[in-house]
Design a protein around this nucleic acid. Sequence first.
DNA 1: AAAAGGACCTGGTGGC
DNA 2: TGCCACCAGGTCCTTT
Length: 272
Amino acid sequence: MPELPEVETIMRSLAPNLVEKIIEKVIIRETRLRWPVDLNLPSYLEGQTVQQISRRSKYLLVSTLNGHLLIHLGMSGNLRILPQNTPVKKHDHVDIHLSSQQILRYHDTRRFGCILWTTQAPDQHVLLRELGQEPLTPELTGDYWYQRARSRKLAVKNYIMDNHIVVGIGNIYANEALFLAGIHPNRAAQQLTLADYQRLLICVRRVLNTAIAMGGTTLRDFTDGTGKEGYFKNELQIYGREGEKCTQCGKIIKHMQIGQRSSYYCPHCQAE
DNA sequence: AAAAGGACCTGGTGGC
DNA sequence: TGCCACCAGGTCCTTT
């Protein structure tokens, strides 16, 4: 479900409902997520006040004075702020009861997500410390992306989805950004010029920022923390549009598998 | 070191 | 209606 814009959207919608609230109770119904949920979570969290919620890559960090909850939504995870008496549905794995009489509920059909507790600085955590740069911060430059691509023969689409280099770009937005930049997704990463990477970075930022402004992309079931859908689906130029006409040139959009992921491109606007 | 493929899960869809 | 193959917004791990 969530790429960077969706996680950012959820974070923003949760912030006013979480920050400065006291965690009164934690209920774990299912521990079998990507990594087991620590059954001591209630003892770590109950009585604590949420200081802030932030995002690193596609992880959400819920911080108290004692430590941080690292939450990843995997492919199908979601977080919702709900009234306390909301009936439990299948795959509602964890509830965090708040002093506001609301609950923060973690739901994840496929259980690829995780909820972990750490008392380390989040950046030092094993899951975060090897992560690459945030795409929306000014520290990232097209030159960095270009330099790291030297001697990389993999498809540029896989390269820009590599979290060790730049985080947050998943399958949908990789497709969209490459289309905007006019770059064929299957070109070797090392083949692109510095100017290509500079242009690509601008396109990545434009796509991500626009998607955030529209509340993310709801393909089937994504919503923010309050249940609102995202409207960037209406703006998708290339993802999922195999057989349709390119919005730029009218040629028929093609589809191919790259690294086992669905890839879409315009054979005219994104020449090999 | 880099690339490719499998693994982890459930559910929806479309074909027969 | 049922069964089956295939697909899905992520990312870690093993093998080549």
